[in-house]
Lab assay of single mutants.
Amino acid sequence: DLRKKIVDLHKSGSSLGAISKRLKVPRSSVQTIVRKYK
């Protein structure tokens, strides 16, 4: 699940930009998912 991957990467200390590059999703999507998770 993409959300879980993003949250896991964020927990392990990756920046939003790094996560978005790695998973090839827009940075804004990463930000939204991380914000919802918090």
Score class of each variant (00 low, 15 high):
15 S>F: 01
38 K>I: 13
36 K>G: 07
23 L>S: 02
36 K>Y: 12
3 R>E: 13
13 G>C: 06
7 V>F: 09
30 V>Q: 02
32 T>S: 13
32 T>M: 12
19 I>K: 01
38 K>H: 15
35 R>Y: 05
14 S>F: 15
30 V>P: 02
37 Y>T: 07
12 S>I: 06
19 I>W: 00
33 I>M: 03
2 L>W: 09
3 R>P: 06
2 L>E: 02
27 R>P: 05
14 S>D: 07
24 K>Y: 05
28 S>E: 09
21 K>D: 07
19 I>G: 01
27 R>E: 06
31 Q>R: 15
29 S>Q: 14
1 D>A: 13
2 L>Q: 06
31 Q>T: 08
21 K>H: 08
31 Q>Y: 06
10 H>S: 04
31 Q>I: 14
21 K>W: 01
32 T>L: 14
18 A>P: 02
27 R>S: 04
16 L>T: 09
35 R>S: 09
36 K>M: 10
12 S>K: 12
3 R>H: 13
8 D>F: 13
34 V>P: 00
6 I>F: 00
4 K>Q: 12
22 R>M: 15
11 K>E: 09
36 K>L: 10
19 I>D: 00
7 V>Q: 06
24 K>Q: 12
23 L>V: 05
15 S>I: 00
24 K>E: 07
27 R>F: 14
9 L>T: 01
35 R>T: 08
16 L>N: 07
2 L>A: 05
13 G>R: 02
16 L>Q: 06
34 V>H: 03
16 L>I: 15
1 D>N: 12
19 I>V: 02
24 K>W: 04
12 S>W: 07
33 I>C: 05
15 S>W: 02
9 L>Y: 05
35 R>L: 07
19 I>F: 00
10 H>K: 03
5 K>Y: 09
23 L>N: 03
37 Y>V: 08
15 S>A: 05
3 R>A: 13
1 D>L: 12
2 L>V: 08
13 G>P: 01
11 K>F: 08
33 I>R: 04
38 K>R: 11
26 P>T: 09
36 K>R: 13
36 K>E: 14
20 S>R: 02
3 R>I: 15
16 L>K: 04
23 L>A: 02
6 I>K: 01
10 H>P: 00
29 S>T: 15
32 T>V: 14
17 G>M: 10
8 D>G: 08
22 R>T: 12
5 K>T: 10
37 Y>Q: 06
10 H>Y: 15
12 S>A: 14
4 K>W: 11
33 I>L: 03
24 K>N: 14
25 V>K: 03
17 G>Y: 08
30 V>H: 04
33 I>Q: 04
19 I>L: 01
13 G>Q: 01
4 K>F: 08
21 K>T: 07
9 L>P: 00
29 S>K: 15
10 H>C: 12
11 K>Q: 09
8 D>N: 10
9 L>N: 02
34 V>F: 00
25 V>G: 01
1 D>T: 12
32 T>W: 09
9 L>V: 00
35 R>M: 07
6 I>M: 03
17 G>E: 11
38 K>Q: 12
23 L>K: 02
31 Q>W: 06
7 V>N: 04
13 G>Y: 00
